[in-house]
Design a protein around this nucleic acid. Sequence first.
DNA 1: ACCTGAACACCGTTCAAGT
DNA 2: ACCTGAACACCGTTCAAGT
Lengths: 177, 177
Amino acid sequence: VPAPERTTLDAIVSAGRHILESDGLDGLTMQAVAGRVGVKAPSLYKRVRDREALIGLVATAVADELGARLESAAPTVPAMARAFRSFAHDQPEGFRLVMSTSADPAALERASAPVLIVARELAGEPHALDAARLVTAWAVGFLTMELAGAFQLGGDLDAAFDYGVRNLERALQPKDA
Amino acid sequence: VPAPERTTLDAIVSAGRHILESDGLDGLTMQAVAGRVGVKAPSLYKRVRDREALIGLVATAVADELGARLESAAPTVPAMARAFRSFAHDQPEGFRLVMSTSADPAALERASAPVLIVARELAGEPHALDAARLVTAWAVGFLTMELAGAFQLGGDLDAAFDYGVRNLERALQPKDA
DNA sequence: ACCTGAACACCGTTCAAGT
DNA sequence: ACCTGAACACCGTTCAAGT
């Protein structure tokens, strides 16, 4: 006797993202997600292996949206850095999750593709990958610290971010430019 | 009727650090810590407010050791970057914890002081703080990604790290150098 | 004065029983 | 074929009772 489906994997992941942002990773419980999609916790196990797998799906979905935002930004270092930072401000918990958990490798690769293109244009082919990693690592670290409140010494964070963008752009030019 | 003390706060924090590295943050349970110091879980509440506070103490202890290592490194960008990376490799869970939790602000400030000194010498006083943040953010981001396995596109990570160090050092010099 | 067993709330997960 | 109540293991935390 078939039974009607009362939810979908997409609804579960979407509920997970919403709860993550409002209640943090600790608040992302199976019961909270189940309640939000109108089902009891045990039913989630029909669509998701366990909580860890659900967290991975949430992280991948966030990484995909980050990639889409970077893709639709202008292909310059400042524009992509701004897009990156505004995403982290909009979804701080999701951003943290993507950076700490290993999300789906394919999603991470998609997200980093736009950066690689800009880096190639700026630094030239031989150092394109190293250059992309330099600017990505800086942005990840800056936002990790900003979100964690780790910039203790005050000062203007917006100015510090601009300083970073400007100097990195300069640093990526080939030495004999 | 007084009762003998069967453990100390130091022993608890030290046990916490050990369990953190061996079993991860999820494994850092009150029962595991209590067992390691030879006591039952409820006794921990005599010395620590709750699990969250214990995690904060562990993070602060790790941050203090990181600061000490940076302080004893040679005052150059490459030497401090190497010290930073080797610390993250030695204590990956501790490193992740310090970067994600807000450890004690005072500990974070102590840890970043040596970087500030080098940055001041390289970039000059007006941009010393911005420069320190640039290099610190890069190192934090690089290691966050390296530890998370987020560098998907292969290549030589040691070389990518060296590339970052070299180019950042160059980027920090005043524009008219 | 610290330590512990017992208790409670809460969560992840499994599974037999419903429809 | 999915959904749920019941059950189990495990954890954080409190507290009365021990010494």
